[in-house]
Amino acid sequence: MLRIFDIWKTYEGRQLLAGVSFDVQEGEIVCLLGPSGSGKSTLLRIIAGLEKADAGHVYWGNDDVTDIPAHKRGFGLMFQDYALFPHLTVAKNIAFGLRMKKHDKVDIRRQVKLVLESIHMQDFTDRSVTELSGGEQQRVALARTLVTNPRLLMLDEPMSALDHDLRTSLITDLHTHLRESRKPVIYVTHNRQEAFALADRVLLLREGKILQDATPK
């Protein structure tokens, strides 16, 4: 499905990624595990098309998508700080991607309603996102990413903004959502337990290289 081939990137004179290659199969959840500063987020941004690699390619099936801009790639990315639009309500945040894809209003309303129900937040429709708790924000961010039906789903440390107790309770939830979506998933984290609880495969990234590629269990 997704194939990352020999990605190189230096940032401010530092070698961040040094020839990273891997692939992700359909419905597979791949965890990128590594300490902070190991280049995980940069790799995600390169895959999403938000940043350009110095060298290397990103393939989707047989298509080289390396030079396709982010908004045309059809990949979903959930940001570490969720990046919810503070000037929009919960429903409008979720509707944003559909609006950009020029869905008609009736369809947008229907889909937003469905997705809000699936995350049990149907009562939050017209709330401002700045009033939400950390856990609620995370669910909205995930819903916003999933509703546009991206062909690949990327999550950048989605648990890092939450406290420990919430994390353990949400991780099963998240796991179900990811499984149900049947999409290829790249999940970035520095937390070993999180990685092993979720992933079909764990890639260990250190000093810009993939040191280990293994299945947990």
Binding site: A48, H71, D81
Partner: peptide
């Protein structure tokens, strides 16, 4: 301005112009 917001708009299929108009400008 949090650059993630603009990038989130890109990932959600907004063109650079749309991202500025519907995210940056309202903010």
């Amino acid at each position: 301005l949090n650059p993630n917001l603009i990038e989130a708009a890109y990932v959600l299929h907004a063109s650079p112009f749309q991202a500025w108009r519907s995210v940056a400008l309202p903010l």
